[in-house]
Simulated assay, not measured.
Amino acid sequence: MPSSLEVILVPTFMIIVGLMLKRLSILESSDSKLLTKIVLNISLPALIFVNLSKADITGDMLILPVMGLLLSFMLLCTAYFYSRFRNYSKKTTWTIMIASSMMNTGFIGFPVSLGVFGNAGFLHAIFYDLSTTILFIVYGMILVKEFGGDRQDILRQSVKFVPLWAVIFALIFNVFNIPIFDLAGSILDYFADSTIPLIMLSLGLTIDFNAIGRSIGDSLFVSFVKLVLSPCIIFVILSLLHIGGMTFNVAILEAGMSTAMNALVLAITYDLDVKLMSSLIFTNVILSLFTLTAIISFLL
């Protein structure tokens, strides 16, 4: 099993490569959108399908999305009371609440779980990530009611979310033991292998150090909630329920992830505080490199 330092250093180096490519004008920040589309629509679905379609699915995996939703609700309440204490506007309050409760359990959580715990960890992470997908849909419905917008748009985005379909089809192939032809399997493997490098390069292209000075107080609050309080809460809950093993490890690791990139999609779509959301995401992505190292060291 790799050391915690190695698990963090490898993807961090890939992020730095992306940052350097942007600095050298070989790639542009806008290229991250293309890389993200490739990841979400091709390589990540392939990675999910390859692993889940042949996996031995256990009952404890079904606990993970429930734990994820419960944790997100607790973080949502924490952010709500913080915003009320600061007397923030409705728009700013929802921005902070969403940033505090939506975790990047897929885009960053998948490669980290895979790197730390291998395929078994990745499979558990897939189930945990279902909670984030559910939250994205629920928040979309709520924000339509609160701020206006097209309710059908969030449904269309959810239906078109290819990783979710990868989970559905993989479960069908798994349950009915449908074989995958060698050629198809090889093609999917090639696409799957490109997932982690593309994710990290894309993340490197999006880094903007100018954002770190914006709303530093709120950024540090959300970072504390997401990166420190969140894994501590899930640790206590799972310990009280006497849940251990891979479910315990992956739940804590995923609970310590930074804010989901889809939170920015919601902020843009429903006219929340986009600049604040960008600053919150950027700050806790950077700080998560240190907190995840500590979490991984604890779990290993």
Rank of each mutant, 00 (worst) to 15 (best):
V7T: 14
L9G: 02
P11Q: 08
I16C: 05
I16R: 06
L19G: 06
I26W: 09
S29H: 13
D31S: 10
L40G: 12
I42Q: 12
L44C: 12
P45R: 09
A46S: 15
A46W: 13
N51H: 09
I57K: 04
T58G: 12
L62N: 08
L62V: 07
P65K: 04
L69V: 11
L71V: 02
S72F: 07
C77L: 13
A79I: 00
Y80F: 13
F81W: 05
S83L: 05
R86H: 14
N87T: 05
W94L: 14
I96T: 09
I96C: 08
M97G: 02
M97C: 11
S100V: 01
S100R: 00
S101P: 00
M103V: 01
G109F: 02
F110D: 05
F117T: 12
A120I: 13
F127L: 06
Y128L: 02
D129Y: 12
S131H: 02
I137S: 14
Y139C: 10
Y139F: 15
K145Y: 07
K145D: 10
Q152K: 14
I154V: 05
S158A: 15
S158G: 12
S158W: 12
K160T: 00
L164C: 05
I168L: 15
F169Y: 08
I172N: 02
P179R: 07
D182Q: 11
A184F: 15
G185W: 13
S186C: 06
I187W: 11
D189N: 14
Y190M: 15
F191I: 08
L198T: 01
L201G: 06
D208E: 06
A211L: 15
A211G: 04
G213C: 07
V225E: 00
V225Y: 01
V228F: 09
C232Y: 03
C232Q: 01
L238G: 08
L240E: 13
H242S: 11
F248D: 03
N249F: 12
N249W: 11
N249R: 15
V250T: 04
I252C: 03
M257D: 07
T259E: 01
T269P: 00
Y270Q: 02
D273A: 12
L287A: 11
S288L: 03
T291E: 04
T291M: 03
